[in-house]
Nucleic acid binder design. Sequence first.
DNA 1: GCCAACGTTGGC
DNA 2: GCCAACGTTGGC
Length: 159
Amino acid sequence: MSRAVRHFLMKTEPDVFSIDDLVRVGKAPWEGVRNYQARNLMREMAIGDLVLFYHSSTEPPGVVGLARVASEAYPDASQFDPKSEYHEPRASAERPFWYLVDVELAEKLPRCVTLAELKADDALDGMLVRRKGMRLSVQPVEPAHYARVVELARSPAPG
DNA sequence: GCCAACGTTGGC
DNA sequence: GCCAACGTTGGC
């Protein structure tokens, strides 16, 4: 008995890992999440869950692609690597701190749906990414909001 | 367990 | 580059 598909938004800085990188590699481990709330959300994910792929710290920030969760959560190997910027000295193989999921490309959207546009659309009222100061890098998304963002991406840009 | 200091995120 | 809003750390 499988549960209903859930929807999420996952942020990435395009300088680090962009939608074009995901187009190129097809599937990638979502490395480097070091926030407990984001980790816990990834541990709730199931294969086939749908993801809005969001570029942050860029101009403009916004949703640029669709992806799917491609694995259950498993320990993020970079926490065990002393040379990695993601190293976690308190972690051990028996007691990992940080988890990740694999994410696979569904599609690169025909255009970026910018944060400004997300904030301006009444149908997206309540979407977490619109909140000032919301820095959580993995966010749950309501199915209707997910559908609306896809619809916007397939419509002409405003203005 | 409180909370000040500090580090990070991320829009602008 | 600035800085507000957070999350984490560590002294007490």
